[in-house]
Write a protein that binds this DNA or RNA. Sequence first.
DNA 1: CATGAATGAGACTTCATTCAT
DNA 2: TATGAATGAAGTCTCATTCAT
Lengths: 197, 197, 197, 197
Amino acid sequence: MGSDKILENKRIKMTKLYDAAYDLFTSNGVRNTVIDDIVKSAGVAKGTFYLYCKDKYDLVDKIILKKSAAVLSSAMETVEQEEAAHHFDFQQCVACFVDYMIEYFKKDTKLLELIYKNLTFELYEKMMNYEEMDSAREAFISNFINTGVNNQTAQHRLYIIVSMVGAVCYNSLVLKVPYQIDAVKPELYHSIKRILS
Amino acid sequence: MGSDKILENKRIKMTKLYDAAYDLFTSNGVRNTVIDDIVKSAGVAKGTFYLYCKDKYDLVDKIILKKSAAVLSSAMETVEQEEAAHHFDFQQCVACFVDYMIEYFKKDTKLLELIYKNLTFELYEKMMNYEEMDSAREAFISNFINTGVNNQTAQHRLYIIVSMVGAVCYNSLVLKVPYQIDAVKPELYHSIKRILS
Amino acid sequence: MGSDKILENKRIKMTKLYDAAYDLFTSNGVRNTVIDDIVKSAGVAKGTFYLYCKDKYDLVDKIILKKSAAVLSSAMETVEQEEAAHHFDFQQCVACFVDYMIEYFKKDTKLLELIYKNLTFELYEKMMNYEEMDSAREAFISNFINTGVNNQTAQHRLYIIVSMVGAVCYNSLVLKVPYQIDAVKPELYHSIKRILS
Amino acid sequence: MGSDKILENKRIKMTKLYDAAYDLFTSNGVRNTVIDDIVKSAGVAKGTFYLYCKDKYDLVDKIILKKSAAVLSSAMETVEQEEAAHHFDFQQCVACFVDYMIEYFKKDTKLLELIYKNLTFELYEKMMNYEEMDSAREAFISNFINTGVNNQTAQHRLYIIVSMVGAVCYNSLVLKVPYQIDAVKPELYHSIKRILS
DNA sequence: CATGAATGAGACTTCATTCAT
DNA sequence: TATGAATGAAGTCTCATTCAT
């Protein structure tokens, strides 16, 4: 059917825009990227941009949402595989997850920067309503509760850990504080373990 | 002397610009503030702006640096006073410091947001070279070492704690994650204690 | 026959476009109405618009032409009925016609505005070539001549009266000059009478 | 003083913009004139345009206001001179005024078109608040009352005459109706006389 | 030093029109 | 015929920066 081809075409245009914008945003920063750069790089007309996005920052949001969900998904998948393969307990699962994240962002520092620098209240809310987010949190929380802590405490501790790991990654990888991520990693895992136990 | 008056005049202009810009940056965001807004609000001419700052982002950096140093100084002062008054041990000093910070940023969320959103590698480096920063770190590290951990570990753990507290504050106060800062505070202090011990 | 249905379909599309455009033009003005508004409001595709109209201004012209002819026709019909019913003389016929027009445009100020604001030389010429226009003019002129003035003078006076009434209506109803149409009506009729006699 | 030079410079820029825009608006129409045309023709930078005008239509309004006031002023001046020189009575003054207007707009049809096509309710209100407007109206009204009609009637009749003359001029000169202004002029003066007496 | 009018590059956005489906 | 995604020229407007006063 004809409409299939049209839909496929639309998908291609979107993808082109997303990919071009992602490259430009991470290479040159959002501020230094103008719509013209994006459309030229994507090989589409300027009007096409406005067919898919309200403005530059709308596209930033969309990209962050998409990329974050993808990273989270593959992290969770990895944890599940490892858990099944090595009969990981909860602490090991958390460590595995954290490790996946650190290793991922070591390779893609620019994405981490993009996410942090452009995370707003509104975007955060949207993120939290993503299915991937919710199921990931549920998985951890339920396992946490199994270790004996109450639900509320579990949620708070998990939140603290996520905040801590995120901040350490960001500081070490993006702000390039004197401490390299690999150097603080042992203490980071140590801290997680202490918080969890 | 005449040059005193000139210097005083310069200081006044500078302060006007800082104050006006700070209000605008925190109310409307850096992106939505243009030089014209700043000079109008400060009551100086546009050209005058360029006598004192390279551009908008230069002013942002200067404001963050100034405000951060002020907050840090008064935090350290408070800790010292409390330490002297109640014979605090190291853990209590850290808790006191963290508490001061949380309470401060609860009242001035916008400053926290300004700092986090505009912290760059370059600015971070400048911050670290500030005397206040250094003496504060030294104070904590030396105390930390007294508890028996080695220097390197002490530095890493302190770094993790600072990152953790900063991130939790930012998330709770700025991103307004589901967990209110007062609600997670107990677990935050618990986590700090566990990391320190 | 199939072609009947096709023609009927075309007529429906056309009508939808006319009606939607008329509403938008009169509500928001021609300048603030874009083709997209029209086709969305009409429920047809953008491409369809170009099957029926050259551009936005072509549609404006068509609408003005259609609406003007309709108003004029019903005005003339009314005059004829009243003339037959009450044995009106020429002055009474003119007054009746003017009254119909005023009352009509009082209820549909927006149409009056649309016509006046978008009346061009070209459109005016097309209007004058409409059968309704011509027969209306002929009717008045022949009656006018019967009152004793020569053809040329009759034409000029009629033209002056029509201009005057149109302008007074437009000024009072659209530009909302300090004088309300009902307040100036007596003087308007008085003026017409003086010009005619 | 230095500020004199600056003020003079500002006046020159404004005048350049007004003159360039007036020429373009009257030659090519408002719709077909873009800001770029205006600033290029005026020899100023694009930003300068926005220093003086909100947008294109704001400039149209300003030009109409300025030109209208100028025409009205010189018309009034002429009437006063003629009145003093030939001991004109009221009817003769009105005829003189109308004549001045007709002759003026015959030479500058484009200005008449610009005014009529772009006269809005808001602009009309502003015009009415102009001193020139008011004093001109007062002059006519007071003379009219001297002929014995009451104030209200005088105002309405004057309003009808102005509307009528304006419309006849516009139709004859801009819409180029079959009747040339010089051909209808006798009947126009006849009509005015009849309305006034 | 201080001013603020002028600049103009360049950002953003619209929208009439086309054309493959 | 009808569609509506895609186009990109053309437009509006902003705003950092300069420089004559």
